[in-house]
Amino acid sequence: MPQNEYIERHRKLHGRRLDYEERKRKREAREPHKRAETARSLRGIKAKLFNKERRNEKIQMKKKIKAHEEKKTKNVSEKVAEGALPVYLLDRDVKSRAKVLSNMIKQKRKEKAGKWDVPIPKVRAQADAEVLKIVKSGKTKRKAWKRMVTKVTFVGEGFTRKPPKFERFIRPMALRFKTAHVTHPELKATFHLPIIGVKKNPSSPMFTSLGVITKGTVIEVNISELALVTQTGKVVWGKYAQVTNNPENDGCINAVLLV
């Protein structure tokens, strides 16, 4: 161990030898050749270790070069944010909301044809036997003209049951639903909305009129809570949604709004 900085002291007193710079340059120029020689002559585990080290070195070098280049070209232009707002809305947290504002004529035409671009295009058909359970009646339980709906149903507000003699289809109270969880696909938000009616059950028109809700059924929901407006400035309140789950299994109705 040196006892003090004698080399530096000497350098300060006498300076470096006269050919120091040249020797240094030459040594540096020889360095790649030397390294290549080692790389060529090394064998086995030593070659592996050497190559690994050299690779890491190169990666670091490239990173450094890139960082320097970025620093040079930094001040070009920052992206302007989208969704410009007027001054009076800048300090308020305006929630982004996708508008319905669909072309009413187009929508009417679609409605007429009874076709919608739905998220679930193919729906497994529900057989009559699956949906309707036969209820035996009569004193000796010989009659079998009564049916009980075993799926979730929507029953309108003013519905009263018929007397038992005339009631062919029984819709059990436990399976009646009034609300659905509807997801707005653009907002990526879900709302708890009241159901207005069943627009179409793809399995059968009879299920539609009975108000049976299965997976793939198109229901009409009340979206006045979302405060969407049409192009003419009217509040939209009824909008269609397609059921995406099996309500009879889950105990709730999940649906996607058709925009």
Binding site: S77, E78, V80, A81, A84, P86, V87, L90
Partner: peptide, 9 residues
Amino acid sequence: QGHKNWVLC
């Protein structure tokens, strides 16, 4: 063109 951000007023 000249501004770098939204023209507010």
